[in-house]
Design a protein around this nucleic acid. Structure first.
Length: 300
DNA sequence: GCGACAG
DNA sequence: ATCTTGTCGC
């Protein structure tokens, strides 16, 4: 029977992703405390000090939270032309830079293989949010796409959504939900696998943890360009490599599939096409999304 | 240089 | 992802 290594007989959660999931908000607080009393700063400088300017909007969102109420006047929206008192001398470790380095390392551990013993049971996992409270659900379907098992959990996310860093927000909840179902052959995750700037998107992070064949499926690409049609799949090219593929149906917008872990693009694409019947995502993900929404509704 | 940017 | 009413269409 499938079992996740993160529940050690009632011990606290342990896994690489969970261990490496730092608290974004405490790190931001530590930076805000460095601003001298007679100075202010701007969001992009805080994001850069955290290690990646891409986090600018996440910083802006965070500053709206109650937790940062007393720091609101220390951050101005734009660098005022007349102001020479914009602080930028932040010190300390760059959290996002370390996390990106970790993704690069884990991306190298992703296994791409055409060996897939069975694919009779397909699991889908997804999460819904109410603020930072995550409601994650995992459903298991048979070949006829009938639900044979499902589970959901709720957990507090300690990290905001930042493009390229989604796994640090979502993986803990998804892993918890996945650990509650009895078993499956392939896992489908709502997000990219190796079609990621550092070859380690949400689907790869989750796949490496559960050590099962894992597929990443997303509605929009994060990196890469759609290449020339090659057979039934249109490759998504990034850095000169086919890191994923665009999957089309007769009608409606396409979706993007990539290797999460222990699978290859052809098989991942085949399973994605075989399970995509209606709507914007394949059935395992539609189902998991519905269950996650239901769990959230039930809670409030 | 500026904007875009999985969920 | 989430905030949100009615509304266009099969």
């Amino acid at each position: 029977m499938f079992r996740l290594p993160i529940h050690k007989k009632g011990r606290p959660l342990r896994s690489q992703v969970v261990d490496l999931c730092p608290d974004f908000y405490s790190a931001l607080l530590a930076l805000l405390d460095q601003i001298p009393d007679d100075m202010v700063t701007v969001p992009v400088l805080l994001a850069s000090a955290m290690g990646d300017p891409v986090a600018e909007s996440a910083v802006k969102e965070a500053l709206k939270r109650e937790m940062f109420h007393s720091y609101r006047e220390r951050v101005v929206p734009k660098p005022d032309s007349s102001d020479s008192h914009i602080f930028s001398g932040f010190r300390g470790k760059r959290l996002l830079e370390e996390m990106a380095g970790d993704q690069e390392e884990r991306g190298k551990r992703v296994v791409i293989t055409s060996l897939l013993e069975r694919d009779g049971l397909i699991a889908g996992v997804d999460a819904s949010y109410k603020g930072d409270t995550a409601y994650a659900a995992c459903v298991v379907m048979n070949r006829d796409l009938e639900i044979v098992d499902s589970a959901s959990t709720t957990i507090e996310a300690r990290f905001p959504y930042i493009p390229g860093y989604l796994s640090f927000r979502e993986a803990p909840g998804l892993l918890s939900a996945v650990s509650k179902v009895s078993g499956f052959d392939v896992l489908m995750v709502n997000g990219h696998g190796i079609a990621h700037p550092r070859r380690c998107g949400l689907a790869s992070s989750v796949g490496l943890e559960v050590d099962k064949p894992t597929i990443g499926v997303a509605r929009r690409p994060l990196v890469g360009e759609v290449g020339k049609i090659r057979g039934v799949l249109t490759p998504l090219i990034f850095d000169g490599l086919a890191v994923g593929a665009e999957v089309k149906r007769s009608e409606g917008p396409p979706i993007y599939v990539s290797v999460g872990h222990r699978i290859d693009l052809e098989i991942a694409g085949r399973i994605t096409r075989e399970t995509w019947r209606r709507g914007r995502l394949p059935e395992p993900l539609r189902s998991a999304h519905y269950e996650a929404q239901t769990a959230k509704r039930r809670d409030s």
